[in-house]
């Protein structure tokens, strides 16, 4: 039994460097494995729709005739299941997280495969 058992520890941290980071100024380091967000290399995708059917959260929508691959970033739980089931290895997990959004219409990312023109990426308005 004793008093001030933690005294040494707190004096050590008083004169040492804080363990926390000044967040917006100092960015967090991610590991190569970090699951941030799902990305699709649309040139490899064959729009089979397996990722959409297997998604536990129902965040992915694929349309074969339109050559469209669409993900709702706020629904996605980044479980990586779509990446694991993708037969053509088109899907991958980016290290960086989806940035927070104030505008709900930005939550859906849609990718279109090439029709005439090359790959283009755009953020769809309020789907």
């Amino acid at each position: 039994m004793g008093f001030n058992v933690i005294g040494k520890t707190i004096m050590k941290s008083l004169f040492g460097k804080p363990a926390t980071a000044m967040y917006p100024i100092v960015k967090n380091e991610f590991y190569p494995n970090t699951r941030g967000r799902i990305e699709n290399d649309i040139t490899l995708c064959n729009y089979c729709g397996l990722c959409g059917r297997r998604c536990p959260a129902g965040a992915i929508e694929v349309s074969k005739p339109e050559k469209k691959w669409e993900i709702d970033r706020t629904r996605c739980i980044v479980c990586n299941f779509c990446v694991q089931v993708c037969a053509r290895n088109a899907l991958s997990t980016e290290r960086h997280y989806t940035t927070p959004m104030t505008d709900k219409s930005k939550r859906i990312t849609t990718l279109y495969g090439e029709k005439e023109e090359p790959v283009k990426e755009k953020v769809q308005e309020n789907a």
Binding site: F30, Y31, N33, T34, R35, V78, N80, T93
Partner: peptide
Amino acid sequence: IFEETTGG
């Protein structure tokens, strides 16, 4: 350690 080994 979790983030490094599993990603989450």
